[in-house]
Design a protein around this nucleic acid. Structure first.
Lengths: 308, 308
DNA sequence: CAAGTTTCATAACGCAAAGTTATATAATTC
DNA sequence: GAATTATATAACTTTGCGTTATGAAACTTG
């Protein structure tokens, strides 16, 4: 026979508090209410749960046994409420975040690390992708936050775009590269070196083409293509190759004294780095918290970069 | 915020079963019913518990966390139902039983031992008392079963009396007592020995006086009075004293070759041994089970005694 | 990709029971 | 035995569960 878990909770409260009145107070209900609930429970159980006509109210053996289960139910309920509370306040949960590979690895991953240090109960599910698919995943709600370079005008009304860094690319090379010491680098200098190209379908690859077109470089030697940021970095540091990278990525690598940028001005892309999510806060509190955190960190990073 | 434990149960069932329809079946409810319950729960929680427009239905992080608590509630409920069931069938619980000291120690205690071997989950709370107080305790429901010698006519309608042995006393002495070897014992033989008397307020003490009056003994030497059965037995076996004991007690002691009875006929008391409980089965199933067990064991004992 | 099947959501309504306040009754205290 | 306190009962409102019927999605299949 199925018992109402609420009845067991009430029983537990009464047994713990030592009386109907106190139990009712404990539950925030009126005394007649719990009195009748106990009656109903006794009727269904078919056995007395309290010794009759004795005060202070004393539970029977069975009453004690059932109250114990009621206590577990109360505990589970309390844990559940607690869980809901932390989720609502965005202190627990999961955030599905994705972005373009180079930028994710070069900049975002360390921001995520800081975030997790502050909110250890929020799980981050990170993945990679290029703008078109990222937007579609946001749209189908299989992704909470996308971090990507995009033209603000290209963002449809469905999404909310928050810029975190202006688009700015540089030509990157290893620390100690022959060109890095020069005060000024000229066109003919860079044509002597071979180039590393990002994957052909990445925005960065388009930036590379545009950049080189812009400064008049027509035929370039591509010695390496594809690969992740760490592959690119390894090849760069192990050779005199050049490549185009977001300045923020190079900035982060400079701290580790691995990469640097050439003192040559190249055109900035018309895409800017930002976070994209569904409009109208249609996302979890933890995602919101993550978004806010990323914005804040990039404000600080932006200031650092401007000083540099 | 307090959540309805029934909602958490439903959530657990749905998550476990993998769908609303299957979850509803698992709970023995209709699909619309659980559908609405989930909606209500989601409203109160304020966060989605299932990913929208996806089938098979997939719970969110929060949904999984809450379902886990729901599972605990389900488990507690099942254990509670199970507990009620065993109590109702009299396979668990407690029986408060009391009786006159000599008879409890001499006969009932071994029956209780057998009972506990068969029903290990039933706890026996045993105590001692004389008839008047035993009846009042039964009346006030602080006692479930009394085992005592009483005149059937003295049992009021409030109680139910079940005779388990006819009243029959004997003069008891140690095995190897000088009188025990005789084929026939005469009055003048027993007057030579000193007597052990039970506590002055016990029914057995009245039996002792009546018996000795009946066979014409006027002045008797009382060498020991009071004490429990084991004290009486120790004194009896260590001396040539005599005393009056219920035959059933001596019968049990004979098995251990400690006591025996004299071959002299004495008048039987008008009280008979029996169990007393409240009329109309106003007691727990476990008490009923105990009563039935005692009756059955004494039917067997009665047959053994009659043969002897 | 259109048709069919499955699964979930919504609607409407009866009913069980939780909740309330007011009040009676029983236990305990003094 | 009177006063006090605790529990039970009464009368009534409101909430929400449970039902069947039906609509609307989403997956499956030919």
């Amino acid at each position: 026979m199925k018992l109402d878990p609420r009845h067991l909770e009430i029983l537990a409260a009464i047994v713990e508090a030592g009386g109907l009145t106190e139990g009712a107070a404990l539950l925030g209900k009126s005394q007649p209410s719990v009195s009748r609930s106990v009656s109903l429970l006794e009727d269904r159980v078919g056995e007395p749960l309290f010794l009759p006509t004795r005060r202070p109210l004393q539970p029977t053996e069975l009453g004690i046994a059932l109250a114990q289960e009621g206590q577990r139910i109360l505990d589970a309920g309390r844990r559940a409420s607690q869980t809901v509370d932390t989720y609502r306040r965005g202190l627990a949960g999961a955030v599905r975040v994705a972005g373009t590979p180079i930028f994710m690895d070069g900049v975002i991953s360390s921001v995520i690390a800081e975030f997790q240090a502050e909110y250890p109960s929020i799980r981050i599910d990170q993945s990679y992708g290029y703008p078109a698919e990222l937007l579609s995943k946001i749209s189908s709600e299989t992704l909470d936050v996308a971090i990507l370079p995009i033209r603000p005008a290209d963002v449809s009304d469905e999404f909310e775009f928050r810029q975190i860094l202006p688009g700015r690319n540089v030509i990157a090379c290893r620390v100690g590269h022959p060109l890095a010491r020069k005060k000024e680098v000229r066109l003919e200098d860079i044509t002597k070196y071979s180039w590393i190209a990002p994957p052909a379908n990445s925005p960065l690859f388009r930036d590379l083409r545009n950049t080189l077109d812009g400064i008049g470089v027509r035929d370039l030697k591509i010695s390496f293509t594809g690969g992740s940021l760490s592959a690119v970095v390894n090849v760069l540091t192990g050779s005199d190759s050049l490549t185009v990278l977001p300045f923020s990525v190079v900035f982060m690598m400079q701290r580790q004294n691995t990469l640097t940028s050439l003192p040559i001005k190249i055109g900035d892309p018309d895409r800017h780095l930002g976070c994209i999510a569904l409009r109208d806060r249609r996302m979890s509190a933890s995602s919101n918290r993550f978004l806010g955190f990323v914005e804040q960190k990039f404000k600080m990073l932006d200031r650092l970069i401007c000083k540099a």
